[in-house]
Design a binder for these strands. Structure first.
Lengths: 188, 188
DNA sequence: TGGCGCGGAGAACGATCGTTCTCTAGGCTA
DNA sequence: TAGCCTAGAGAACGATCGTTCTCCGCGCCA
């Protein structure tokens, strides 16, 4: 097993365990067991749990936004792409391992204690907002900023509400609200 | 110090510490120190940390919804009360100790591990939705259900977005989106 | 006044955690 | 083949946590 494979297995195990059970309840030894990578190697690649947690968040950020962007980009017209975000959310919410936003969860758990985690979470949310801003702009909005911010609020609200209630329905509520927001902003 | 005072001091200390630092990072001994109640008494009143956590969440639920309802009820006309919710949120977000939704944070941390916590969180969100439903109904909506769900999503989104970005601005975004939702539902 | 029970302070206990250390086996080089 | 470097398995260590126990002093009742 070379180093890149070990990194991948470690991050895969960390992501699965941290996301499902929270960060503090998952010990390093559990990640070793799930990944099959020895503890020595683990600490060679990620010198502390904090570093591993930040790496987990940053890799998940890239994958998450990549999957969203890929789904949305498949829509032929730019006008329907902002609402497509909420269709993607609904699919995500229906997956059995869905447990809310990894970043919001991490922030609630460690936002006070770990500046690195807090920054990774803020970066993620900023990137999502930037992405929504582009979608809204390309859909033809004169002033995309306020609309993008409203869509970001709706997306975060849908994620947390769905996580707690256990149903994908909030995605549809958020989509309907987003539709009202877009209509009020002047483009249907 | 009698029992009701000890309970109050314990719950005050637990609420301040759990909300600010998260639940797992705060030990029972820290709650003892902050409350001035001996460890023996603490365990007499709350036989385990889980019980204390649930009590913290349930008391906070009542206080939080009470404060919101009091603020909103001061609005003279029922029609403006749904939007007043977001004015209250904005005031809350501006307070220095604001750190997001205690229930979402607790759910992210312990939702998998503690069924009692998960249930308390779900109960809180259900009560908030019920409250919003009443506001929307009293404002004159023919079908208040979908509108109330959209407002609930907006409120949760505003709370988490504000917690992470550190500004009260998402309350205004959510308010504007709520206004669009209400307008689209037929009552301006 | 003398014994008794309750409450407080804090030590103690067992478990767990993040992190490091030890020991050993195996593969590469000369 | 002999020596050495690496890596893995897992013990070990120090800290912390939830929870319980010990010890002591103070107030109450006969």
């Amino acid at each position: 097993m070379d180093i890149t494979e070990a990194d991948g297995r470690l991050l895969d195990a960390a992501e699965a365990l941290f996301y499902e059970h929270g960060i503090q309840t998952v010990g390093m030894d559990r990640i070793r067991a799930a990944s099959g990578v020895s503890l020595k190697r683990l600490y060679q690649r990620f010198p502390s749990k904090d570093v591993l947690v930040e790496a987990y968040l940053r890799r998940r950020d890239g994958r998450w936004r990549g999957a969203l962007a890929e789904y949305v980009a498949a829509r032929p017209s730019a006008a329907e792409r902002p609402l497509a975000v909420f269709d993607w959310l609904e699919e995500w919410f229906g997956q059995p391992d869905f447990r809310g936003c990894a970043f919001i969860n991490a922030y609630g758990e460690l936002g006070t204690a770990s500046p690195a985690v807090a920054e990774a979470v803020r970066d993620h949310k900023a990137e999502v907002l930037r992405y929504l801003h582009g979608l809204v702009r390309d859909a033809g909005a004169a002033e995309p900023g306020p609309v993008a911010e409203q869509l970001a609020v709706l997306a975060d609200g849908a994620i947390t509400t769905s996580a707690i209630t256990g149903t994908p329905a909030p995605a549809r509520s958020a989509r309907q609200a987003a539709s009202a927001v877009l209509e009020a902003a002047g483009f249907a």
